[in-house]
Amino acid sequence: MYRNILVPTDGSDITAKAVQSAIALARTLGATLTAISVKEPFPYSAISEMQPVPPQEFFDAQERIASARVKTVVEAAQAAGLECAGFTVEASHPWEAVVDMAKDKGCDLIVMASHGRRGVSALLLGSETQKVLTHCQIPVLVIK
Rank of each mutant, 00 (worst) to 15 (best):
M1C: 06
Y2K: 03
R3Q: 15
N4Y: 00
N4D: 07
N4K: 13
L6Q: 13
L6Y: 13
V7G: 13
P8F: 07
T9N: 10
D10C: 10
G11K: 00
G11A: 07
G11S: 03
I14W: 12
T15H: 13
T15R: 08
T15Y: 09
K17F: 04
K17D: 09
A18G: 03
Q20C: 04
I23W: 06
A24V: 04
L25S: 01
L25Y: 01
A26T: 07
R27E: 12
R27G: 02
T28M: 12
T28C: 03
T28L: 13
G30P: 13
G30N: 11
G30H: 12
A31V: 04
L33S: 11
T34Y: 11
T34P: 07
A35Y: 14
I36G: 08
E40C: 04
E40M: 14
P41V: 15
F42G: 05
S45G: 15
A46F: 12
S48D: 11
S48T: 15
M50Q: 11
M50N: 13
Q51H: 05
Q51G: 06
P52S: 05
V53Y: 01
P54D: 06
P55G: 05
P55E: 13
P55S: 00
Q56A: 12
E57R: 14
F58H: 05
F58D: 00
F58G: 01
F59K: 13
F59M: 15
E63C: 01
I65R: 15
A66K: 04
A68P: 10
R69K: 06
R69P: 00
V70M: 06
V70F: 05
V70Y: 02
K71R: 15
T72C: 00
V73G: 07
V74Q: 11
V74L: 10
E75C: 03
A77C: 06
A79H: 12
A79S: 13
A79V: 08
A80E: 02
A80D: 04
L82W: 05
E83C: 06
E83R: 10
E83H: 08
A85S: 09
A85P: 00
G86P: 05
F87T: 08
T88K: 05
T88G: 06
A91R: 05
P94T: 00
P94W: 04
E96R: 04
E96T: 01
A97K: 03
A97L: 02
A97T: 05
V99I: 13
V99D: 07
D100M: 02
D100Y: 00
D100G: 02
K103F: 03
K103H: 06
K105D: 03
G106V: 08
G106K: 10
D108I: 02
D108T: 02
I110S: 09
V111K: 02
M112K: 06
A113M: 09
H115G: 09
H115R: 14
R117Y: 08
R117K: 15
R117C: 09
G119V: 07
G119N: 04
G119D: 08
A122S: 14
A122C: 09
A122E: 14
L123D: 02
L123V: 10
L125F: 14
L125H: 09
L125T: 07
S127M: 13
E128Q: 15
T129N: 00
T129H: 04
K131L: 09
V132M: 01
V132E: 04
L133D: 10
L133Q: 03
H135Q: 13
Q137G: 11
I138H: 01
P139A: 03
P139D: 03
V140K: 11
V140A: 07
V140I: 12
L141T: 11
